[in-house]
Design a protein around this nucleic acid. Structure first.
Lengths: 202, 202
DNA sequence: CCTACCGATCGGTAGG
DNA sequence: CCTACCGATCGGTAGG
């Protein structure tokens, strides 16, 4: 019994199983480097059978990317509105982001890189959602500058990209079986990243 | 006269032109998302004609990735051995890295992401070179910890990945026509990234 | 560098 | 979910 046959025996819905397999393969080999035959083989059906459950390869990607971005937005958005200082918000957001990456490293890679293969309205939607996510971090930094917690001369655009760049690189190296938990990794990264943005260094 | 026909008229060697076009397309659409026909079309020849100049699609990728990584190593390696303090080395390395990205944003994207499509010995070689590059940053940080310039409790592995993550994300957003020069962007990123690693905050 | 082509593989479908 | 298949496209080659 293959892993995927076992998954079916455990009553995972076929469509969900296809999405899980596609997430794995798109994350590891990329969207263009993955064929529907690859997905079908790992799911344990013949290629044509996939189309009883999904419309197209691109629909699969759109769903993975869309839900993936939303899981990042869903965990960081509440932090923006919370009642703590900007540096504490930033620390919480960094830790939360690493936590979402750790939930699914391959899904994170699809969210960070494979969205480029979407087209038309789906591409526009993915770009808009990604911008919304970056805006959450920008809002925290702008607040920090306004309250004096962060450097007055902070270039918020570059600081957001510096922090998000470091965070978006984590799926390249984070491993669940490492010595540090995802929360620990987030703590360490926050401690590395935040002091350079602060107004006061003590 | 197409841009590529113009390039030929300017006496660019055919093989070099093919490499330039492949770098552009691999960077924008990915290796698997780019066909030899795409490359031939932009070069201005028929697909089969490419093979008078190159062996295979993968050889093209191997050459772009190999020379690309070497241009990063070549500029940062000398900084490691220079006669300044570790924080000055790190600042110089960050600025140098952004400079190499700015020389070719698309080439940088190929170096950072498309190396995965190499196989066998070429894949091993690319992985080894990438590790060598990360080691240059790790050596700077280890020296900084040893001299007391950087925090004694610094997790060097995570700090290297944090800094390199931020740097490797720059091709996602750096634009040559932006208001800041590459050197300016490097300066700002260094100022954002280094204080979190320092032992003394003043 | 072109003409003409190879076998393999691609995403996807009709009908059961 | 399988059988059987579609036209399109893939990387690459022989011969000129």
């Amino acid at each position: 019994m293959s892993a995927m046959a076992a998954a079916r025996a455990e009553l995972i819905a076929p469509r969900e199983l296809i999405l899980n397999v596609a997430t794995h393969l798109f994350g590891v080999k990329g969207y263009a480097g993955t064929s529907m035959r690859d997905i079908a083989h790992e799911v344990g059906v013949l290629p044509g059978s996939l189309y009883a459950h999904i419309d197209s390869k691109e629909t699969l990607l759109a769903e993975i990317v869309g839900e993936g971005i939303e899981s990042f937005i869903g965990i960081v958005q509440p932090i923006v509105g919370s009642a703590v200082a900007a540096d504490a918000k930033l620390r919480a957001a960094i830790i939360a982001h690493v936590g979402v990456v750790a939930q699914g490293v391959e899904r994170a890679q699809v969210v960070f890189h494979q969205w480029r293969f979407l087209q038309g309205a789906r591409l526009d939607e993915a770009i808009a959602k990604r911008a919304l996510y970056a805006d959450a971090f920008a809002a925290i930094l702008r607040e920090g500058v306004a309250t004096g917690m962060l450097r007055r001369d902070l270039d918020v655009a570059i600081a957001v990209r510096t922090v998000l760049g470091a965070l978006n690189w984590t799926p390249e190296w984070y491993r669940a079986d490492g010595s540090l938990s995802a929360a620990d990794v987030g703590e360490v990264m926050a401690t590395n990243l935040i002091p350079g943005l602060l107004a006061l260094r003590s």
